[in-house]
Amino acid sequence: MRLLDFLFPERRDTAAIARDRLKIVLAHERASRAAPDFLPELQKDLLDVVGRYIEIRDDMLRVNVGHSGETSLLEINVELDGAKIKTVKNGAAPAKPAPPPIRVPKPDPGSHPPWVKPG
């Protein structure tokens, strides 16, 4: 097999890989470039407000500008999975609840990018 590989090396079209990677990364970058400057500030404020009622981590609230046809949409997504509702007694500050469980995604051995050979 080794000898065959040596004699007939597999010619991979790396230019096609470059093209596909560029298309994906530029789609992301163009979308974030088109977003208004106030988004991070808005996200912070929303976290403060939502955080008064629900215990959430920063990454559970996402603010994006999307498009649906001709209309621009401000999308605010709050993930509630694993969020804890705060209870307020007599106006006192709620006791600090235990931090929400942080789920670590299991590494998927099959999720290599197409140009990486699984070792």
Binding site: R11, R12, D13, T14, A15, A16, A18, R19
Partner: peptide
């Protein structure tokens, strides 16, 4: 040879 982005790309 497929080693470089083409003009059209």
């Amino acid at each position: 040879k497929g080693e470089m982005l083409a003009i059209d790309d």
